[in-house]
């Protein structure tokens, strides 16, 4: 049985069976959920294609239900194509795609929750930008999606992926950790580097609160997708350079759970604390 509940167990399965991370995650999905190899692969491919479609279908003219969110993706796109980009082409694209996806979500467009709708911009921003930069096949990207999904599963089983349960560290934090691991895989990282990228990424997101204005998935959620995506790229690069997290990946996940549990309810998606109760927040819908 290819069963894993921790990243250590996932790492051991990879090493013992001389497989890649995505193969263990795929095999485990087949065993646990009774899917054939073809069914599992097809489902994952569809998720990735839906992400690409959502990216392509961004419409900068749309506004969210609050009539306040929308159009920022267009702004950063214009900035990027004007060659004013100070972050380099790849990071510029990552930021642009993350904002666009976050806005599409707020504007009731079709997206892929990964792991949640609020954090739906992080993983596709990193993956699609990387595919475009290095001209990779969809097949390679599906493998990266399995890596991300396996990491997300471990986080969900040992901590949480919902802002209401653990704050934003559970949403953008988890998405960033998933994207960091997937990116380390795409850069031909070892399993150790993959889980290390995950640890570095999540560690930097610990304590992040979920205090959205009016409880809407708009402020600060949309922009935070961009930060989560760039954090993933930074973490993958550190891991690929051989820099290691002093805290093991599973210990970081465990810390996220304990931090989330000690977070007050007003900072867990109730719209009753933090940014949500500021004067600017009260004015947000009046404009």
């Amino acid at each position: 049985m290819f069963y894993y509940h921790t990243l250590k167990e996932l790492e051991d399965l990879v090493n013992e069976n001389k497989l890649e991370v995505w193969q263990v995650v795929e095999q485990s999905d087949m065993e646990e959920n009774g899917r054939t190899k073809e069914q599992s692969y097809e489902k994952m491919l569809n998720m990735y294609l839906a992400m690409k479609e959502a990216d392509k279908n961004y419409n900068g003219n749309l506004k969210s239900a609050s009539k306040r969110a929308g159009g920022d993706g267009e702004k950063i796109h214009r900035y990027n194509v004007a060659n004013k980009n100070i972050c380099g082409k790849f990071i510029g694209n990552v930021m642009e795609k993350a904002i666009k996806m976050g806005e599409s979500n707020a504007c009731m467009r079709r997206i892929v929750a990964a792991p949640t709708a609020g954090a739906c911009g992080v993983l596709p921003a990193v993956l699609i930008s990387y595919q475009e930069e290095y001209n990779l096949s969809n097949d390679e990207m599906v493998k990266a999606m399995y890596v991300a999904a396996g990491i997300g599963k471990v986080i969900a089983e040992n901590a949480f992926i919902a802002g209401a349960a653990g704050g934003c560290q559970a949403e953008i934090g988890s998405a960033s950790a998933m994207a960091a691991g997937a990116l380390a895989f795409l850069q031909k990282g070892t399993v150790k580097q993959i889980v290390n990228a995950t640890a570095l990424s999540l560690k930097n997101m610990l304590g992040l609160t979920c205090d959205p204005v009016k409880g809407l998935v708009e402020v600060p959620c949309i922009k935070r997708n961009s930060y989560g995506a760039v954090n993933a790229v930074t973490s993958a690069q550190l891991a690929m350079a051989g820099i290691e997290s002093a805290i093991t990946p599973d210990d970081v996940i465990d810390s996220m759970r304990r931090i989330g549990n000690s977070m007050p309810a007003c900072l867990k998606e109730t719209g009753t604390g933090g940014l949500a109760v500021t004067e600017s927040a009260n004015k947000y819908l009046e404009k």
């Binding site: 999905d29 079709r110 997206i111 399995y146 708009e218």
Partner: peptide, 21 residues
């Protein structure tokens, strides 16, 4: 946990609980 509860579902935003649910 099903990995397609982690990557997925494909849904119309903005909220998995308040919209998709």
């Amino acid at each position: 946990m099903d990995i397609f509860d982690i990557v997925g579902p494909i849904m119309v935003g903005p909220s998995s609980s308040h919209t998709a649910g």
